[in-house]
Design a protein around this nucleic acid. Structure first.
Length: 426
DNA sequence: TCTGGGGTCCTAGGACCC
DNA sequence: TCTGGGGTCCTAGGACCC
């Protein structure tokens, strides 16, 4: 059996942790640029604040009910996430924990005897809550997909389950499948849900009755087959070993307001490149390919939101690198290639791919041996920036004015990761 | 006039996740 | 006026190989 532990309204819970006055009050957290709502407390949900909806649309409702509103504070959430994961690792040992996202982890429970599953799940939940102050829900079942399904039901019926649901008998599993609409199955998104409905498949139970051939031809090949098996209780998605390094690294942002100057875009892209290169070095990798994209702002005559076309281009580097200055140069050149005068842009981004381990970089006859100096320089730069923050040291091409910077007007203090912003008890 | 069978590698794009 | 950011996996189809 395996469990998924999922923090309840994670970002809102983090904000509340340092604002006990907001307990039982509606809270929402906004995406970067204060654009969308990405986390809502139960109270905010009850008021009818929609998920992933644009902030400006929900604003009247939010103001009317005095909903506490925060810009996202990823320093804070990242630190609290780490505390939750460490707690789990302490309880069951690190090898049994697979961190799935900032607020979720799978835990392997094969070592727990069946009759103790329920009490162990409760123990997990209570320990995390006591040690970190973050409320969680626990779903337990034979497969990952089923445990996600259990977790969702546990959250949905808090009063009956107290946020813990263990599907340890065929009968319980069947009931859970019946109570889950297809669009709420993990792995079924908007598109597949529509398709399944057309086949008159409305619940997870309906879907589980189909066979593998059917899933293969209608739900995206092998992924669909895996999903179906998991629903039927046959383990088809293994627990993963500790996160290996990423295969793609991206840094992309909306601009605070649209920009038209090529220089602003160059500065933004140089800054994103620095950030992406940092991520690359943190996992001790180097990249072979750098690509840049921009998204022009388009007039919306229809009033309906559309993701504009993204215009992108890439460069293959002569040699894999993680040195910021070697990445900024091609990145800025790509901006010049993509930029069209007179257009307004709302977003830009940098992606690094063709990622290889840093210690196995292919030698290049023409590269001077003192290249290693760069690595040392980058290492020092990362350390200084990590200690001081706010990018004390940066490359001149990143600019100093940052007219294009994103909005973040409602951010709470970084209580746990900055000395100057430490939480004070008076 | 006739033009196989079996591979690999790469890219673009779709679908999904939180 | 104002709609996030960062990922993963898979498939189809083209180019190329023997």
């Amino acid at each position: 059996m395996k469990a998924i532990i999922d923090c309840n309204s994670f970002y809102c819970s983090c904000e509340r942790l340092f604002r006990p006055d907001l307990r039982n009050k509606p809270v929402v957290v906004l995406s970067n640029n204060d654009g969308c709502i990405i986390s809502r407390s139960d109270e905010a949900k009850q008021l009818g604040v929609g998920m992933a909806g644009p902030y400006f649309k929900a604003k009247p409702l939010i103001e009317q009910h005095k909903v506490a509103t925060f810009s996202s504070n990823y320093n804070l959430y990242g630190d609290l996430s780490w505390r939750v994961m460490e707690t789990l690792r302490t309880i069951v040992s690190a090898e049994r924990v697979e961190v799935y996202s900032v607020d979720e982890a799978f835990v392997d429970l094969t070592h727990i005897p069946p009759h103790e599953l329920q009490s162990f799940a409760i123990y997990l939940k209570e320990t995390v809550e006591q040690w970190t102050g973050i409320k969680v829900s626990v779903g337990v079942a034979p497969t990952k997909v089923l445990s996600k399904l259990a977790n969702r039901l546990a959250k949905k019926h808090k009063a009956a389950t107290d946020c813990v649901l263990v599907l340890d008998t065929p009968r319980k599993r069947e009931q859970a499948l019946q109570r889950t609409p297809v669009e709420d199955i993990w792995g079924v998104g908007y598109r597949y849900a529509e398709k399944l409905r057309r086949f008159n498949i409305n619940s997870a139970y309906d879907l589980a009755k189909h066979n593998a051939e059917w899933a293969h031809s209608h739900l995206g090949g092998v992924t669909g087959v895996r999903l179906l098996r998991e629903l039927q209780g046959i383990e088809s998605m293994q627990m993963l070993e500790e996160l290996d390094s990423k295969k793609m690294i991206a840094t992309t942002r909306m601009f605070g307001s649209p920009v038209s100057e090529v220089n602003d875009i160059r500065e933004a892209v140089a800054t994103y490149t620095s950030r992406a290169a940092e991520k690359l070095r943190r996992q001790q990798s180097a990249a072979n390919i750098i690509s840049v994209f921009v998204v022009p702002k388009e007039e919306s005559h229809t009033g309906r939101f559309r993701h504009g076309p993204t215009i992108s281009s890439y460069t293959s580097l002569p040699q894999a690198t993680s040195a910021t200055h070697e990445l900024i140069k091609p990145a800025v050149a790509l901006v010049d290639r993509l930029y069209e005068q007179g257009r307004l842009y709302k977003k830009a981004g940098v992606m690094l791919s063709g990622i290889v381990p840093d210690d196995s970089i292919q030698g290049n006859l023409f590269a001077p041996p003192e290249k290693n100096k760069h690595r040392l320089l980058m290492h020092m730069l990362d350390n200084v920036n990590f200690a001081m923050r706010n990018d004390i040291i940066k490359f001149a091409s990143s600019g100093t004015t940052r007219d294009w910077k994103m909005r973040q007007e409602l951010r709470s203090p970084r209580f746990t990761t900055r000395w100057e912003e430490l939480f004070k008890v008076s």
